[in-house]
Design a protein around this nucleic acid. Structure first.
Lengths: 204, 204, 204, 204
DNA sequence: CATGAATGAGTATTCATTCAT
DNA sequence: AATGAATGAATACTCATTCAT
């Protein structure tokens, strides 16, 4: 039975995975499909094969599910940015790799990302504040890299670093509006192109 | 009273402006403030100083108000893009100006833009299809400009034109997430910076 | 039809009476029968022959219905007390009559009274505050009468007037716990007995 | 640890007292604070520092806790009334002392009393019947004392004994609505005043 | 043109209780 | 004796929309 559980849990699938994981998987899929407010708690628990009581046993509110989805994506991206920031590679390389990496991980978690950009404002005000604070931390980490490149002369200083970050992340956010897994380009190709555009824009 | 009307009508304000305009103004403000689904029809009619009957006299549904907001913004931007596309100026200049202009008009209509990016998926499927088609037309108009520059050799062909357009428009969509009217930069300055980043990225 | 309405409205009956009155009548009966919290909004609207939407069109919440029931009783009793307070009769007579009258009107509105004493604490805190303030005003009006009698020497001063009022009103509150319309004594007989007990206790 | 237990057990406190007692103490406090229906089983077990399983091990239902609170108070008051009834003192003295005593014990157990008068109707019908029967027994015991006084001529027969009992017990029930431990009068003073009012009302 | 009372299906959330361990 | 995950039915409340006037 332990092995059955382990097997089914691979993707948070409905069979024998732990209930909270099943709920998160169902919520993520449904929020991405029809949006947060168009998804009822009833639909989530039906998709997860549990009852409402079980959901509220693990999550305080529908809002909590949304917040957890954000947390999952934010933690992942922050972790990866930290790795690039702390690397020994030349700044130009670190920025290019970080810029491409965030594209790849966004595409790999496109449902989470779509939910993020569409539904953040439906979070309760206090949770929204928390998310914004974490988001800002991420933004500032990236900005620090850009500024480092500008100070060392490998990047143009024509544009304030803040704007550069917003420019790049606008395109990252936008991915969930147009990227289709069955499209012409692989995630890595898209990532390389977008990172390339950023690097070219930063040439002195 | 005629003067009072004229005065209040400046911004679609509540006093004596035509009822449909007052409804649109109220809906736009409220949708931007609290989101489409968090705004009730009751709140809209109260803010507009009319009754529900009046709203349903002019608009078929709440959904229609949203669709109308989209139409207003899309028509404006398409019009302006067409002007740049049809101009006699060198291609580089036309792209730079179009790229900057869409930033300025987006900031000038930041409420509309915020609603656009947050609430498009809350439109009814058929209206969503309509909007997407118009959006695609706009996208293709812009892509044609990029391709013209690539063919004539003034823009690098390293990145497919489609991706370039998505890159730039990602940052335009993103504006409503970070731009604040009381911020450091004027709309025109932001527009110049973002257009500059695009042009630098396109350098051969 | 206007006459039909008028006829049916006599007791707030369900037939043609105005919807708010029908709702109040249904709520009063059900709250008295099974208590506030054991009565669902669904049951109220069914008993009134309307839909939930109609209830919430006229009342902001279930709580509002309760508050309105209190208001109705409080206004009635305050009005009558004011009449006795302002009368020209000798103080002893005024107190006896007021003391008896509150018993009669309590019995005449026994459902309201029962709801009052059982369910007041289930009101929202702010509404509870309002009710308590009005109740205190009533209490103080009655206390003033007692004190007037004490000062003029017709009532004993052995007991503080406050306690006297609480003593009498305890028995008034208690009425809904034991009085049955089909019992041995008429409302007026009960009232006379209780007023008599008060007057005897107040003899110097 | 044994001493810690002993200390905390003084008031049925949470530390080391037996689990059922801790549950009763927590339930009593919470029911008095926010009412029976506004208190969840979860809150009770948290306040008692145990789990739901433990509660249902000792009590059949939430309802049982309420019933037990009633039983505790009723047993105490019946016991004390029986003592006065069986005493050798003159009837006037026995009534005065019983009337005062029930006031003191009500104030000493004000939480129990408040729960009693507010929440009796929230008991299940059959338990309610039981409680009412015990209450009636108490009422009749007190009435017998009044009647004894009336027959022996020391009390007026102007008022039926039943009504006299209801008059006095109305004020006892009412205590939990106004008595505050930090008020002007001690429990004994209040008791003396209320007993005095009763005795004065009964003067022939 | 405009009203606003009324609808009815829908929403998130709560909670006493059970039961496998 | 005790846990705590899970149930499932019930709850108050919302809201876009309709329609007789």
């Amino acid at each position: 039975m332990a092995t059955a559980k382990a097997k089914a849990a691979e993707k948070g699938g409905p069979a024998g995975a732990p209930v909270p994981r099943r709920l998160m998987a169902a919520a993520t899929r449904l929020f991405a499909e029809r949006g947060y407010d168009r998804t009822s708690v009833q639909e989530i628990v039906e998709a997860a094969g549990v009852t409402k009581g079980a959901l509220y046993h693990y999550f305080g509110s529908k809002d909590d599910l949304l917040h957890e989805i954000y947390g999952r994506l934010l933690r992942l991206q922050q972790e990866r940015l930290d790795a690039y920031a702390g690397s020994e590679a030349p700044i130009e390389e670190r920025v290019r790799e970080a810029a491409a990496d965030v594209v790849v991980t966004t595409i790999d978690n496109l449902d989470d990302a779509m939910i993020f950009f569409r539904s953040m404002h439906q979070l309760s005000p206090d949770k929204q504040k928390l998310v914004r604070a974490e988001r800002r931390r991420y933004h500032e980490g990236f900005r620090a890299l850009i500024e480092e490149g500008q100070k060392s002369g490998v990047f143009s200083t024509a544009t304030p670093a803040d704007l550069v970050v917003d420019y790049h992340f606008g395109s990252v956010h936008h991915l969930s509006s147009w990227y289709r897994p069955d499209g012409r380009l692989t995630p890595q190709e898209v990532a390389d192109h977008l990172a390339d555009l950023l690097m070219r824009a930063l040439r002195p």
